[in-house]
Each structure stands twice: as C-alpha cells, then as structure tokens.
C-alpha cells in the first residue's frame, strides 16, 4: 500500500514468451531510480486487476496459450475499459496487442472477439514477419526513435479511431504493407516490438511512465536519468540490418 505506481503484469505465468518481464522490470526500475515507490502485481486467471493501477502490461504467448486464455481475457473487457476510463495506461505487446483490438481471424477462418480497446483487426497472414525493426514513433506529442524485433503471423489493420504508434523504416510493422507499426488510442498502446521494447527504448518507457505517474506528479516531466548503457544499446541496434 501507499505505492506511487502500481504496475499490473497480466498473466505473467502464461503470456511471457518474448522477455516481456523485461518491460515490467524497466518501468519498475526507472520509476524507483526517480524515488517513486512501485508495486508490481501479477494478475492471472480468475484474479481481478486492482483499482488504481497505473500501468497494465499484456505480453505475447503461444497460439495455444492465447486460445486457452481467450475466455478469461474477454471477461476482463469491462474491468479494463473502466481502468482505461480512470486513466490507466494499457500496453499490449505482440499477441497482447492483438488481444487489445476488436477482432482476430485465424488461418482457418475462425473469428475471435478481442477486448475492443483499440480499433484494430488482425488476420493471420501467409508466413511470419520476422526480424529487426527500426521506426520513428509519435506518442502523446513526443517523437522518438524506436528499435526492436518482431515475430508475428498476424496482419493488423487499424480503423479510423486508432493511429499508429510508429512508422517503420525497416521491418514489417502492423501488416507489412502500409508502413504502420503498433497503435495508440488514448492511454491504450499496442506494439509488435519485443527486444523487450522498454529497456532498449528508454524514451518510450518514460513516455508511458510519465502518463502513468501523472496522478502523483500532476503530469510534470520526469527527472532525467543517466541512460548511458541504454543509449549505447539503442544506437547499436540502429546500426543493425533486418
């Protein structure tokens, strides 16, 4: 109790195929290094997301796990919509991003409803989009460079109510066609990038943190950190080919 920031890791036992734990760790440490008190709460099947969470993180899993999770996750629709209404930041990565959308259509044509937090639809495509990604992101008025690794079979198309998180200069992004990557709608953010994405892109992490901490800070800018190692890793990742 009394934490400045509650980070909820949804299904950490099941949706954690691609180092998603690193995203939680990056947010937690970057808030703690600035003197904020942080609680990390694991929420799995049948458990409720606590009121007042600053960030909810939803990672990616294998198809089988995602299928099995479907009913539990869809039951969370009202709970998460309410949290978003109260200002909670929700981040979905890869499979978690697909879940945030309206609809997922599998390779054999089966449609599954998503959480509907982002106006987006995902259809299984031919082959997977796999490789390094370089992109320019724009999130809540801040532009920054984004690097990571994508590995997904789904192709995501955004509706008019969502805007892309980034434009790719290298990589497939949402669908390999329109150059968009990820999506933003209010405080809900989705991306295909792992790496994991926050440790390699501290500006992205801090953008999320600034918004999540705004009930405590009044929306003030966060104190800057010594990001030498992060910046060197980011710059190195920028030099890599697909």
């Amino acid at each position: 109790m009394g934490a400045d920031l509650v980070i909820v890791h949804l299904y950490p036992d099941l949706l954690r195929t691609y180092g998603d734990r690193g995203n939680v760790l990056a947010l937690q440490r970057r808030a703690e290094w600035r003197g904020f008190r942080v609680d990390v709460v694991a929420v799995s099947r049948g458990e409720r997301v606590p009121r007042g969470a600053g960030v909810v993180l939803l990672g990616g899993g294998t198809d089988r796990v995602q299928e099995a999770l479907g009913p539990d996750l869809r039951d969370r629709g009202p709970e998460l919509a309410e949290a978003v209404g109260e200002g909670t930041v929700v981040l979905g990565v890869c499979g978690g991003y697909q879940f945030l959308g309206n609809l997922y259509v599998s390779a054999d044509g089966v449609s599954t409803e998503g959480l509907g937090l982002i106006e987006a639809e995902t259809r299984a495509g031919k082959g997977r989009l796999v490789g390094r990604v370089g992109a320019t992101a724009e999130l809540w008025g801040n532009r920054f460079d984004l690097v990571g690794f994508e590995n997904h079979g789904g192709r995501t198309t955004l509706g008019p109510g969502a805007r892309p998180l980034a434009r790719v200069r290298m990589g497939g992004g949402n669908n390999g066609l329109d150059g968009s990557e990820g999506a933003v709608r209010g405080s809900v953010v989705g991306t295909y990038l792992h790496g994991p994405v926050f440790p390699l892109n501290p500006q992205f992490a801090d953008g999320i943190l600034k918004r999540a901490l705004s009930p405590v800070t009044g929306g003030d800018d966060l104190q800057s950190l010594d990001d030498g190692p992060e910046e060197r890793a980011h710059e190195h990742a920028r030099t890599l080919h697909r």
Binding site: A3, I7, H9, P12, D13, L14, L15, R16, T17, R21, V24, L25, Q28, V38, D39, V40, V41, A42, S44, R45, G61, T62, R64, V65, E67, A68, L69
Partner: peptide, 25 residues
C-alpha cells in the same frame, strides 16, 4: 516477492506452463 522492493512476481527463468491437452496452467 510479490512486488514491493523486489522484482516482478515471477521466477525469472520459469517457462510458460500450461497443459498440452486443455491449456489450463
């Protein structure tokens, strides 16, 4: 531990574990 000063509430190298037949943890 579960949050607090510790790290995320899951052992670092645990595999995602669910039943191959029914998907239950």
């Amino acid at each position: 531990g579960r949050g607090g000063a510790g790290a995320p509430a899951i052992a670092a190298d645990a595999e995602p574990e669910s039943c191959l037949r029914c998907g239950t943890g």
